[in-house]
């Protein structure tokens, strides 16, 4: 009994030390965001702020129109994730379970787009966006990245592992294609859908280069764009930047806490981590 307790203590101590170690950068950002401009650069650096000030947060919210950017980002993230899930589960299912001519070719074409960096595609994509009339509209940052090849691949691999017999049995019971998809495939794919949700939320939340190109109206800026604007040619406005970074982290932490069970499951199931 005592032996057991002892080793537990040891494990917990090690875990606590490790987690402090891992959390340090995040806590450092949090503590720095509460410091005044002079204290931020004082030497030696202080771990906890001497005077806690919310000036950085106030100036981020007031001057930088932070509320607006937060709304834009949340809107883009939710709608784009919903779209991504709808499109990706459908095409993943089709590529996994329907046998038709050229299905492998389509999959390979899909995946090959992963090999080309966005920077190389930027100008053609910009032209397409402009021709479609989506340039400088919030839909321009939602729709184009919605059908991610990574997502389709992730879902396809998972659905591939579901036994065909189940689909056949559902059909024997008189289910049509739509019912098979909604009532058999979707519920069984819950873990991978949860994983993709986290990925998609993360991708959209952090997306930077595409919104930079697709948006030219500051009112439609997302948080990432707004944060980057604190960086000039010669100087960085650290105070508000850190404050914004903290507020930007919060929703991600919430999403992760909510879905973390699935997150780990999903990584184990697919072996894919971004």
């Amino acid at each position: 009994m005592t032996q057991n307790k002892k080793s537990q203590w040891l494990i917990y101590t090690i875990l606590i030390i490790l987690s402090v170690f891992m959390l340090f950068p995040v806590l450092w950002v949090l503590s720095s965001s509460l410091k005044s401009g002079t204290e931020l650069f004082s030497w030696p650096p202080t771990i906890f702020p001497n005077d806690i000030t919310f000036d950085n947060y106030i100036s981020a919210f007031k001057e930088a129109n932070f509320g607006r950017y937060l709304f834009n980002t949340v809107f883009v993230t939710i709608v784009a994730t919903a779209l991504t899930l709808i499109i990706n589960t459908m095409s993943g299912y089709a590529l996994a379970k329907f046998r038709f001519k050229g299905s492998t070719v389509i999959l390979i074409l899909f995946l090959s787009t992963l090999m080309i960096p966005l920077e190389a595609l930027m100008i053609p994509m910009f032209v397409v966006l402009k021709t479609l009339g989506l340039y400088n509209s919030i839909w321009g940052i939602i729709i184009p990245p919605a059908a991610t090849p990574t997502g389709v691949f992730l879902i396809r691999q998972y659905i591939l592992s579901l036994p065909d017999e189940m689909i056949e049995a559902a059909k024997m019971d008189g289910a049509n294609e739509w019912q098979v998809f909604m009532k058999v495939i979707i519920p069984l794919s819950a873990p991978v859908i949860a994983t993709l949700t986290i990925f998609s939320v993360m991708w959209r939340w952090q997306d930077y280069i595409w919104p930079l190109i697709a948006i030219s109206d500051t009112r439609l800026y997302t948080l990432e764009l707004a944060i980057a604007n604190f960086v000039g040619e010669y100087s960085v406005d650290w105070g508000p930047l850190l404050a914004m970074a903290v507020v930007t982290m919060v929703p991600m932490i919430i999403v992760f806490l909510f879905f973390q069970r699935f997150f780990v499951q999903g990584i184990m199931a697919t072996g894919v981590k971004e």
């Binding site: 910009f126 280069i209 030219s216 604007n229």
Partner: peptide, 15 residues
């Protein structure tokens, strides 16, 4: 259109 300095040329060139 406020732009981070590092991406100024990216934005101008793309447009």
């Amino acid at each position: 259109i406020d732009t981070p300095y590092d991406d100024l040329m990216t934005r101008i060139r793309t447009r």
